[in-house]
Computed example of a mutant assay.
Amino acid sequence: MNPILQAQTAHKSIRQYTDQAIDESLLKQLIQSAQGAASSSFIQAYSLVQVTNKDNRQKLATLAGGQKWVESAAEFLVICADLTRVEHCSLQQGLGKLEGNTEHFIAATTDATFMAQNLMLGAESVGLGAVFIGGIRNDPAQVAELLNLPDQVYPIFGLCLGYPDAEPDLKPRLPVDVVLHIDRYDNTRCASDVKAYDSQMQAYYQSRGDNQKSSNWSEQTANAVQKKTREHMLDFLQQRGFLKC
């Protein structure tokens, strides 16, 4: 495989970091490179907040459910969907304020996510480790207040960056044949695909070097989605100017 394909398939979430700082010029270079990601109609509807204040890092770690790596990582960035510049352009061109269209929310969220994935891949290519932090959505209102986020901006997730101080095992992903459908979606194979993958993941959890456990993908996935509904998100987003129509 070429280096890019190799880096993509070798991704591991890193939660333990050394004390080594990331050079500011390198961080800016990584962000600039990440901006090469695709953007819906080139609106580039995202912003990042680099959190350097230690007290704020501690507060964000607590809000995220006690994720201490938010504090220990060399850098912690909050990735935001941001329509403020888009709305400015719309007003400037005489087309009025944004009205909270669902399409605009999707475009901004995907723009930010494409950029963030590019940023993570770039960071890993230069020897850094990273992990996304969805836990900041546990209390997005407090995160928004802490970071002074205006309306038309919402925090999607955080990103820890740093030099790895651990080498976790690589999790096997779903087989390509499970996620790839030809011409028509085939739902008849769902049960058998999940059963086979459960067996693979159970063997992985029991054999890995650290944090061995008896579990499978179904159990992990069901708990992840059913116990993290974050029902406050719709009201929060609507108050920010999103998802009104």
Rank of each mutant, 00 (worst) to 15 (best):
residue 169 D to H: 00
residue 160 C to Q: 02
residue 196 A to M: 11
residue 177 D to H: 15
residue 155 P to W: 09
residue 192 S to Y: 05
residue 172 P to I: 05
residue 156 I to P: 01
residue 199 S to E: 14
residue 186 D to W: 04
residue 182 I to L: 07
residue 167 E to C: 06
residue 159 L to Q: 03
residue 172 P to L: 10
residue 180 L to K: 12
residue 173 R to H: 15
residue 155 P to M: 08
residue 203 A to W: 06
residue 190 C to Y: 14
residue 166 A to R: 05
residue 180 L to E: 07
residue 182 I to E: 15
residue 157 F to Q: 03
residue 181 H to E: 14
residue 168 P to E: 05
residue 187 N to V: 03
residue 186 D to V: 11
residue 160 C to F: 02
residue 169 D to W: 01
residue 175 P to E: 00
residue 184 R to K: 13
residue 172 P to N: 13
residue 169 D to I: 00
residue 185 Y to R: 09
residue 187 N to C: 03
residue 179 V to F: 02
residue 191 A to G: 04
residue 191 A to K: 15
residue 161 L to G: 12
residue 165 D to G: 12
residue 168 P to N: 12
residue 201 M to R: 08
residue 163 Y to K: 14
residue 194 V to A: 04
residue 181 H to A: 13
residue 187 N to D: 03
residue 175 P to N: 02
residue 168 P to Y: 06
residue 170 L to N: 04
residue 167 E to L: 05
residue 164 P to Q: 11
residue 166 A to F: 01
residue 200 Q to F: 01
residue 199 S to Q: 08
residue 188 T to V: 11
residue 155 P to T: 08
residue 160 C to W: 04
residue 157 F to A: 13
residue 184 R to H: 15
residue 190 C to E: 05
residue 176 V to F: 05
residue 193 D to A: 06
residue 170 L to T: 12
residue 202 Q to G: 15
residue 188 T to D: 15
residue 203 A to Q: 10
residue 181 H to F: 15
residue 195 K to N: 15
residue 199 S to L: 14
residue 196 A to Q: 14
residue 167 E to W: 00
residue 202 Q to A: 12
residue 189 R to C: 02
residue 165 D to R: 06
residue 155 P to F: 11
residue 194 V to L: 11
residue 203 A to C: 06
residue 161 L to Y: 10
residue 159 L to I: 05
residue 184 R to V: 11
residue 163 Y to H: 14
residue 181 H to G: 10
residue 164 P to F: 08
residue 178 V to P: 02
residue 202 Q to T: 14
residue 182 I to C: 06
residue 173 R to M: 13
residue 199 S to R: 04
residue 174 L to I: 01
residue 195 K to Y: 08
residue 188 T to P: 11
residue 198 D to W: 09
residue 185 Y to D: 06
residue 185 Y to N: 09
residue 171 K to T: 09
residue 162 G to F: 08
residue 159 L to H: 10
residue 182 I to K: 10
residue 156 I to Y: 02
residue 185 Y to K: 08
residue 197 Y to D: 00
residue 173 R to A: 15
residue 172 P to T: 12
residue 169 D to L: 01
residue 166 A to P: 01
residue 189 R to Q: 13
residue 201 M to D: 00
residue 172 P to V: 10
residue 181 H to D: 15
residue 160 C to I: 07
residue 157 F to E: 03
residue 171 K to F: 09
residue 162 G to C: 05
residue 185 Y to P: 08
residue 183 D to R: 09
residue 182 I to F: 07
residue 191 A to Y: 07
residue 188 T to F: 08
residue 160 C to Y: 06
residue 182 I to Y: 10
residue 192 S to V: 13
residue 180 L to Q: 11
residue 198 D to S: 03
residue 167 E to F: 02
residue 170 L to F: 04
residue 165 D to H: 09
residue 164 P to R: 11
residue 179 V to Y: 01
residue 202 Q to D: 11
residue 157 F to T: 12
residue 162 G to Y: 08
residue 177 D to N: 15
residue 173 R to N: 12
residue 156 I to C: 06
residue 186 D to R: 06
residue 161 L to A: 14
residue 164 P to Y: 08
residue 175 P to Q: 05
residue 177 D to C: 07
residue 199 S to N: 07
residue 161 L to P: 10
residue 190 C to S: 04
residue 188 T to C: 07
